[in-house]
Computed example of a mutant assay.
Amino acid sequence: MEFRLLGAVSVATEVGVLPLGPAKRRSLLAALLLRPNHPVPVDRLTAALWDHEPPLRSRGVIQGHVSRLRVLLATADAEMFGVELLTQGTAYVLRMPESLLDAHRFEELVTLARGQRAPADAVAMYQEALSLWQGPALTGAYPSQPLQAAAQALEELRLASVESLAGAWSRMGEHARAAAVLRAEAGAHPLRESLSAALMRALQRAGRRTEALDWFHRTRRLLADELGVDPGKELADAYAMALRGTDESEQEDGGRDAGRGPVGARAAVTVTSPAPSPAAV
């Protein structure tokens, strides 16, 4: 059994993916999976399912979705895997081995990768971690503000891991591979300066100075047009390196990677509940 947040919110079993049903039910499951083995109060679940004032019978709707999830888990023999959806007062808790959750395994692999001395070992672990992603996080859930914030936090962890993977390739002298890893992400996230700077360094080290300079000018124009800002220090330093046509110490990537510290994904993606409006009190 596998619970998935890194792509469509889903539960995979030996006989196929469970039919979770509507977006609200997927959202409820996502909110519980973002805090596995911790009670999630009803007000947090309500915030995850409704952006504005919830319907009068919101608690009954949540209870109905919980009941349906319990039935689905029972049909998949979830208890055999140590999975149980429990009620604790005015909260619900999904008891489960966290190894069954793709987001937990992703975080664990990235943390291990960051501790590797050999770049080849780091590359293998980063690749395994990133292979767990099957699309944008929390796909299919209701796009409430708390769940969107959680999805964005997971995406930030993914992008940071891509940058770290490229840094590990560079420490192996595989600058073309580092550039290939970074180019797709830099194209998809053109305003993320750290990605563009890393791509420029990889291109420069791969002997593709003109491409590095072109990428800088492209990014500079986008920053000016979209945000009205100039390139930051990291991007400016990568540009200066490309202008000089000289390499900086490749140990820089390793130092940056090692200094990130633990990922802390679960803390970053906790679903929080906004303060209740006077009408809701």
Rank of each mutant, 00 (worst) to 15 (best):
L112C: 11
R114Q: 10
R114H: 07
Q116T: 13
R117D: 15
A120P: 07
V123M: 00
V123K: 03
M125Y: 08
Q127N: 13
E128M: 13
L130H: 07
S131Y: 08
L132V: 06
L132P: 03
W133R: 10
W133G: 01
Q134E: 13
L138R: 00
L138H: 01
G140Q: 02
P143W: 08
P143G: 08
Q145V: 15
A149P: 03
A151D: 05
L154P: 01
L157H: 12
R158S: 01
R158G: 01
A160C: 06
S161R: 02
V162H: 02
V162M: 01
S164H: 12
A168I: 05
W169H: 11
S170R: 15
G173V: 04
H175N: 10
A176C: 08
R177I: 08
A178L: 06
R183W: 08
R183A: 14
R183P: 02
A184D: 14
G187C: 09
P190E: 13
R192D: 10
R192Y: 09
E193R: 06
E193C: 06
S194K: 09
A197V: 03
A197M: 09
A198C: 11
M200C: 09
R201T: 11
R201W: 07
R205T: 07
R208T: 03
R208E: 15
T210V: 13
E211L: 13
L213C: 05
W215A: 10
W215H: 15
F216K: 01
R218D: 13
T219R: 01
R220P: 04
L222P: 02
L222E: 14
A224F: 09
D225N: 12
E226C: 12
G228E: 05
V229M: 08
D230T: 14
P231H: 09
